[in-house]
Design a protein around this nucleic acid. Structure first.
Lengths: 333, 333
DNA sequence: GGGAACTCCGGTAACGTTGCCGGGATTTTT
DNA sequence: AAAAATCCCGGCAACGTTACCGGAGTTCCC
């Protein structure tokens, strides 16, 4: 085991004081250029690397950013994480990533641990059940800038980065209307989830703006995302719509398959649109029109504004909304 | 700005010494149970959290584990990361995750940064082009245990965790043979990638074991994964096989779609099997038979053996091989 | 009842680094 | 030529924690 070289070692070998070595390495101004040179030379020779931990302790600056997401293994979140890490390494920050597995207790535990690690910033997307954000506030009280993304809650006052799901839904429905659809059904998600509400509102507003009466029989909520989607699809199909706007891609794909089995042609008889732009949507037959959420960009932006707050020491508590993009494919042409 | 609570604060408030507080919190044995209780009580009240950085400095143990993957945003790797973080937080370790984006320079940069952070262990899945592992060896020379997973290279001597792709491929082809297929084609990946080689070998050995002559015309390599898959599919289909074993699910799905367009029925005329068990494979029509790789378990195991090496200070340089599972669906029934 | 063992606590020195202060030596200014 | 400014450097304290040592007080045992 080779012990790492420290500034003490350099000082001893050069017969100068520790402070002088430190100044030489830090490129401070009250240092003789010659001594600086000799110090740097020896440092290179011995392959000196500053001890990050020691620096962090005294400077109270770790350049570590904590990230908490409900689940790493999801297309959207892993995209966001990807964007974050790319920007972080570029800006010389380090990431500590935790997942809450949608459990509030694990979420709090993770945040506490991250704070104990002296993180300089916190990036968080809360779990489904997080209502009371005390632990997050604790972090803020310790002067740690916090940025929430995607899964945000109003109880915390901080900068937030989200995707404009309302607009995404609106665009999707508008697209169907322009294709000539008049009887557009909607298969929604759990009634009280903010995601469901926003997407449904976009649907309703698009109909209204184009003077199409909304029909309660054409709107079905699924209690859970996967569970009774097939039931919902059956019911909706009985109303013989000419288009279906689905809460997500999985539901849309199930709808396509069910409709085809019943002899409908897609998009000939019924046009179908999903949401998320999962990798699946490009390879199913027919390829699915869907709403792309810029996960990578969300991650990058969230990281960007967080670093800004860390370095400028200003918490603006702004809301950033990224726009979605409608990806039109065969299922709605 | 509220300054974090330290053991000094606890000591002052209780009128006892810092060392006593430290002992009480560390649950040492030469401490009065009563004083220990009062200390713990106050610690809970003031929400004391030990300062990780300070602990790391004195104990020369950061409990930080560095992870480098080619890409976070992939189903397999994000599953592995998920397994790693779950085990890490359970064992009170922290993760620093970097992605190399398949670039050797970024990979090296990431490793160097992680080492400078005094990581206690390194978990790495190398990029496609990584041939010379000097930077990894540097880490090993600094006594940092290294565990490679999935994308391993023989040049580095360390513990490795992989999935038995050979066996997965063998099982897939064996399954096709048992279904009565005699003319089984293979669409492979880049010729020199270890993944491609292993899967092809499993294919070849299964044929041999069942006394089926392999036919070079039925084997096609795609130079890149996505690029010329469609070309390969066209060529292979011209040989009119009764089954195709594809290097991954995406290729398999493309094969299904192309074959159907040409009037073949799946699985009636041609049976098709993929590899990976991407979420896609369950929803395409027909649902795709594929080989499941236990990403989550790979991550958990890799993290487990790494922690073991860190704590037991023994590098066994073993090879762990996890088994795959054949997921049979409609495309091969 | 006196030495031995045990219990429990405080003081001090580290870990590797930075920041501040003071001061000697040199240079500049008046 | 004296005063002032500048240039460099060393010493010391700190960051929050742990490890080690010594010692006061209590209990134990013959």
């Amino acid at each position: 085991m080779i012990k790492p070289v420290t500034i003490k070692d350099l000082a001893r070998q050069l017969n100068i004081s520790i402070s002088t070595v430190s100044r030489a390495l830090r490129n401070a101004n009250d240092i003789n250029p010659d001594t600086k040179e000799t110090v740097l030379k020896l440092a290179r020779e011995l392959e000196y690397e500053p001890n990050f931990i020691a620096q962090s302790l005294v400077k109270k600056q770790t350049r570590i950013i904590g990230v908490v997401v409900p689940l790493i293994n999801s297309n959207y979140f892993s995209e966001a994480l990807s964007g974050m890490t790319d920007l972080a390494i570029e800006q010389n920050y380090h990431l500590m990533i935790c997942q809450s597995n949608e459990r509030v207790d694990l979420e709090n535990k993770s945040i506490r641990k991250l704070v104990a690690c002296n993180i300089n910033g916190l990036l968080i997307s809360v779990s489904k059940d997080t209502k009371s954000p005390e632990v997050i506030r604790e972090a803020q009280n310790k002067n740690i800038p916090v940025v929430m993304f995607d899964r945000i809650i109003p109880e915390v006052s901080c900068t937030k980065v989200i995707v404009d799901e309302y607009e995404g839904a609106y665009k999707a429905v508008e697209h169907l209307i322009r294709k000539g659809c008049k009887k557009i059904a909607h298969i929604g998600g759990p009634r009280d989830l903010s995601v469901s509400k926003k997407r449904k509102q976009g649907y309703l507003d698009a109909l209204r703006d184009y003077k199409i009466e909304d029909d309660p029989k054409l709107i079905i909520h699924c209690k859970s995302f996967e569970e009774d989607a097939s039931n919902a699809i059956r019911k909706v199909l009985a109303e013989s719509p000419d288009a279906i706007f689905c809460i997500n891609d999985l539901t849309a794909i199930m709808a396509i398959q069910y409709a085809r089995k019943k002899g409908f042609s897609i998009p000939g008889d019924i046009r179908i649109v999903g949401f998320n732009n999962d990798p699946v949507s490009g390879v199913v037959q027919p390829a699915l029109t869907t709403v792309m959420q810029p996960g990578y960009e969300v991650g990058k932006l969230a990281m960007g504004v967080l670093i800004d707050e860390i370095e400028k020491k200003t918490a603006k508590h702004k809301l950033f909304t990224l726009r979605t993009r409608l990806v039109t494919r065969l299922s709605s042409r």
